[in-house]
Design a protein around this nucleic acid. Sequence first.
DNA 1: TGAATGATTTACT
DNA 2: GTAAATCATTCAA
Length: 188
Amino acid sequence: MARALVGQLLVHDAPGGLTVGRIVEAEAYRGPEDRAAHSYGGRRTARTEAMFGPPGRAYVFFVYGMHWHFNVVVDAPGRPHAVLVRAVEPVRGRELMATRRGIDPDRVELTNGPGKLCEAFGIAREHYGADLCTSSLFLAAGPGATKIEKSPRIGIDYAGAWAERPWRFFETGNRYVSKRPRAKVGRR
DNA sequence: TGAATGATTTACT
DNA sequence: GTAAATCATTCAA
């Protein structure tokens, strides 16, 4: 599912305006066995509840005291699997995104990261558990991606062997794919 | 009730 | 390259 979502569209038809982005980077989180997932070990709390519900809903959470992250729940109720959308390429509403982000509309920093895209699209707490088929925030079929690459997931080094799984998918060469922490990437 | 921490971003050296 | 910002959630006491 993470791979399939790359190339599809994320749409938010918000009161303040329309924003559309083509997903260019996504990661799979496969609880309860995946140690990197919030639902690891079957941990079902108020925070992770959405992951245990029906697919096609939003799992939105807050991290580092300032950033929201957006996931799509992708498996049947009771199977807490989700896909984290890490980056999108702006398709519509670039000006609105720039206003929300407080930066120039031409910068890739508009949406090249999980926290950035949420700010650009105005995604936050109120979207927790939202049905992505019937709400103002939804997914739509997109043009696909030219070429998709995979790599280990970002920022989950604590997950032991699970951290090595190649469950991050992104469009090869796309400027909006998030930058990786240098230390992890082989430089030469 | 309190302490630790994170699926990050940004600014500064 | 390093560090600060900043708080909901989780877990232990």
